[in-house]
Simulated scan of single mutants.
Amino acid sequence: MTFSAARHRLLATALALALLPFAAACGGESSAAEGTGGGKVTLRIGDQGQSLLTTLKVYGQLKNLPYDVKISQFDSGPLVNQGLQAGVIDFGVLGDTPAVLAQASGIPAKVVSVTRTVGPGYTLVARAGSGITSIGDLKGKKIAFSKNTANHGFLLRVLDKAGLKQKDITPVDVPLQNVGNVLESGTVDAATVSEETRAKYLQAHPDAVQVINGRTVTPGYAFRIATDKALADPAKRKALLDFAQRLSTANTWIAGHRDAWVQAYYVKIRKQTPALGRQVFEAVGRTSYVPVDDAVIQAQQKQADLFTANGQLPGKVDLSGQFDPSVSRDFNARTVQKGSSS
């Protein structure tokens, strides 16, 4: 099921006008333009929160590239999707839910690599006095999340586990960066929060209830997607394969260099204390590249069906079109460490 072609053309035109100046403004050491200065190929990359950029920089993976790289920052997975749809980026990093919605929206792109994090992911945190002590108490409650992001997918899985649907709660849709602030304000009963937000909120509100986390209900996947146009260009595809391998190499290095990563990302970028950064790093858990295989496709299809069942998609969405066996084979060979599995 895809949305109308007319809507896509209108969206692409509007976003191209809106995002091109933004992408051009993303140059500079802290946010984007890195490269060799002489490469004929330029990869346009969509990042979130400088996580991908920092991953590459901390282990020197942006040095001596045989191509140019331009990294633009987006505030959420849905915005990365908009960049892909508008044609202003070739490759984007996003959560499992935006990856599903990329296919549902008819964005011409394929999954090229997948990571799996073994930690809690998102946590449903209820404020003290909300009356929520378990998922069975969620009916009718005001719950904050960010629509069409991974924390939305997490919430639907939690509700499904309790035999509920989104219509059974009072949803409060807020921008991804504001979910923690809304919970702090006391205007909602609960919120789906990241590990970093959970740790900070619990420090200030030790009597808050941690109802359930993603380890119980989600597979912990995150996705890297490239446009069909970029993958069809032999030079860009070769550059993307190298870029994906560099991401995997840097990710492996991070696992053995906790303090360097905490300082580079949580302290410098996220502006956290070293102590909180170390706490979050340990709690988040190990992230590894895993094969793009049937297990990944089935997990994504199950999530798509859950969105349809909750009225968040107009009909059945077939996720198989987002996975190309030749793409999976080539990128798996570059990104998956020996012994990894999903």
Rank of each mutant, 00 (worst) to 15 (best):
T192S: 10
G131S: 08
A144D: 01
P108S: 10
G140I: 05
T197R: 08
R116Y: 04
D90K: 00
T149A: 02
I132A: 01
A190K: 01
T192K: 00
N181Q: 15
A86G: 15
A126L: 14
R224S: 12
E195M: 11
F91Y: 15
S130V: 02
P108R: 06
P219E: 15
D160A: 15
I89H: 02
G92F: 11
G121S: 11
K139Y: 09
V211A: 03
G163T: 13
V193D: 02
G83T: 09
P98I: 11
T218K: 03
P206N: 07
K110M: 06
L138T: 14
G95S: 11
K165N: 12
N151T: 13
P175A: 07
L176P: 00
A204Q: 11
R215L: 06
S130M: 02
L101T: 09
T218Q: 14
R157Y: 00
V114A: 07
A128D: 14
Q210A: 15
T170R: 02
V93M: 06
V100S: 04
K167E: 15
S194Q: 15
Q177P: 07
H152F: 10
G136R: 10
I225G: 02
T97H: 08
V93D: 12
L164E: 08
S105T: 04
Q103F: 02
A99M: 13
Q82N: 08
V158H: 00
R127I: 03
G83P: 11
K167D: 14
A128S: 15
I89P: 03
A208V: 03
S185R: 11
R157E: 09
V188W: 00
V179R: 01
L84D: 01
I135D: 01
D168C: 11
G121Y: 07
H152G: 01
P171M: 07
T123S: 13
L101S: 03
P120H: 13
T170L: 05
S105L: 05
K141I: 01
K142A: 15
V114W: 07
T216I: 09
A102Q: 08
P206E: 08
V125S: 05
D96E: 12
D96Q: 14
L164I: 14
G129C: 05
A190T: 04
A204G: 10
H205T: 06
A208S: 12
A204W: 00
I135G: 00
L164Y: 07
Q203M: 11
S113C: 15
L124V: 07
D173F: 06
L94N: 06
S185N: 10
S130T: 05
Q82M: 12
K200R: 15
I135T: 15
R198G: 05
R224D: 14
G106F: 09
L138Q: 05
P219W: 09
V88F: 05
G106L: 08
S113R: 07
V100Y: 03
I225A: 02
R157A: 13
Q82I: 04
R224V: 09
N181S: 14
L155K: 06
A226Y: 03
S130D: 02
K165I: 05
K141P: 01
V172I: 14
K142S: 13
L164H: 09
L155M: 09
D137H: 12
K141G: 01
N148V: 04
A190R: 04
